[in-house]
Design a protein around this nucleic acid. Structure first.
Lengths: 220, 220
DNA sequence: AAATGTTTTAATCATATGATTAATTTGTAA
DNA sequence: TTACAAATTAATCATATGATTAAAACATTT
């Protein structure tokens, strides 16, 4: 009998681990959902594919998340949070200069999006349909307005170190230069026969180039 | 009896017009399809919605175009053609300088996309899934390689008028600066409370600004 | 070990959706 | 006018898809 104890204990431990992995089951589903949603978008995603990717029964998905919509909203919110966090952190930092902030944003964002290239297109194409509910749940606007970045930027304009154009140009240029290549990636691949390695090289170059370009662009 | 003749003739004329509008029926369906596909993308589009938008019976859609896929491919191809045509025309023109080409591309593209703001996001998000079939059907690659633009660009590099970085940076910067604002438009709307009128103003400004920026960016 | 609650599954449902069919209307020509 | 072809429609089909249910497996507590 005692011979079975270790086995049983082992089994119990494994099961207990699985039990703790209740969280892991939930996480497995979320992870699979992230993968599929990011790649295909909400409308083209089948819950069955998420279930298969997660290695679980379809019913379990609804058991944990009630519906495809609810699961999607969670993924969407987390994705946006993850994306804006980088910008928020850099822009709130009072100890860096305006130039340093640009350098850091370029570097960190390119790193982020090299890891997860589908994110920009995912966010932008899903926002186009959904009403702006996601934004009301994220206090990005308020944070940015009070940020160290905004102060420094307005100062720079007053001191005529930066051209006096609408600040939106600055944001559009910076994010466009960083993010657009990843959105247009498939076009490059098909059109210019650009391989993965070359693309990475180009994006590494841009880490250095974008801050330089931004300075010359925004000069008065 | 003759009293009825005008009416009948009138009716006939109207019907005959409708008959000529066989083409118009096809065109009505395509136009509706364009609208809905552009706005929602392939996966989120319902053929019933296209039919309703076109004011025709659902079966008629399949009568003219066989399937949703076939109809979509036609729309997609025409949309891409329309989008690239602008670039091709400007870039092939041997009578303009490199600077003028940039000015013209910025101006024409912003005009184009102000009229049809959904196009960039539509093209880019649909390409992400579909295999690159659409590109093989469009000879963009070959045309651009032989274009006046390419010649002038390579000349400028040799004469050290333009920085010697990978030419892809040039394309990414130009298209990113032009197109990205339209892709990010919903974010601006929700985040920055930016209204239509203001957005248009900003884009008008960019017609002038982008060529200037491109020059300073690409200087050695 | 028994009882209880939680997680997981197989089977099934209800509806949405793309497509087809058979009949009807309309236009054209003899 | 009649006959024939083309365009259009209402009704229907087949399947995909999100969701639910009832039972089984598993874990936890007593």
């Amino acid at each position: 009998m005692s011979l079975y104890l270790p086995y049983t204990v082992g089994l119990m431990a494994a099961k207990k681990e699985n039990r703790k992995l209740d969280r892991s089951t939930e996480e497995k589903i979320k992870s699979a959902a992230r993968t599929v949603f990011h790649k295909k978008g909400f409308a083209a995603t089948r819950t069955r594919e998420i279930a298969e990717e997660a290695g679980i029964n379809l019913a379990l998905l609804n058991y944990y998340f009630r519906s495809k919509e609810k699961l999607f909203q969670i993924i969407m919110l987390e994705t946006m949070q993850g994306f804006y966090q980088t910008m928020i952190i850099v822009f709130m930092d009072g100890s860096t200069t305006l130039e340093e902030k640009i350098e850091q944003v370029a570097e960190k964002y390119i790193d982020l999006v090299v890891e997860q290239p589908e994110i920009p297109l995912f966010i932008l194409s899903e926002i186009r349909n959904s009403s702006g509910d996601f934004f009301t749940k994220l206090p990005i606007n308020e944070l940015l307005k009070k940020s160290s970045f905004m102060q420094q930027f307005q100062e720079a304009v007053q001191q005529k170190k930066v051209a006096d154009v609408h600040p939106i140009h600055f944001v559009l240029n910076l994010m466009g230069l960083i993010v657009f290549p990843f959105i247009a990636r498939p076009v490059l691949t098909h059109l210019g026969e650009m391989a993965d390695a070359q693309f990475r090289t180009v994006m590494e170059e841009r880490k250095k180039l974008i801050p330089v370009w931004m300075k010359t662009i925004m000069a008065p």
